[in-house]
Write a protein that binds this DNA or RNA. Sequence first.
DNA 1: AGCACGATGCTCT
DNA 2: GAGCATCGTGCTT
Length: 191
Amino acid sequence: MILPRAFYARPTLTVARELLGACLVRLVDGIRLAGIILETEAYIGENDLGCHAKSGKTRRNAVMYGPPGYAYIYFTYGMHWCLNAVTEAEGFPAAVLIRAILPTEGLEIIHKRRNGRDTLGPAKVTQALAIDGGLNGVNLTETSSGLWIESGLPVSDESVTVGPRVGLYTVPEPWKSIPWRFQVVDHSKFR
DNA sequence: AGCACGATGCTCT
DNA sequence: GAGCATCGTGCTT
């Protein structure tokens, strides 16, 4: 089942936690590339100094200000794309960064796209699933976008760790260390 | 196994 | 012009 708009129209921390175990799907040339989401991070509003919306609405972050259930995809470090799912009410900028997946469908293609390497990292996820800026702003709640998220396996609290978000080196406290990162500890049971 | 570093170009001040 | 929600390599232990 495709996760509906109402799934995303909730507090971002709730969405980030519940996206663990869900299935990220990318349709390329009629072929499904998919993986179970293993790691997420929440970015919540203009007060969150780690969030791209910290300085208000710009051309880059505009999608985050739109309705929930859309893809916010940004380019960084001169070569990498990162995928987010927009959350909360329209007008409030918030999103969940998809940081890692366990590939489940289209394994050969994913393997080839990743040159045999893992898919544990936000830019590795987008490279593996052929996601780039051309998909910024697409609707994650319908298949016609070629990118959507389906409900997957429930993940128990015991198999989830919570911790600080990654890569926010110059972000001031408390935002730098606030535990808004969610990770499936042992994903061997999904294999 | 872990750390340091360079790559590389877009976005906003 | 500075900074960046990263990755892979290569060197050290």
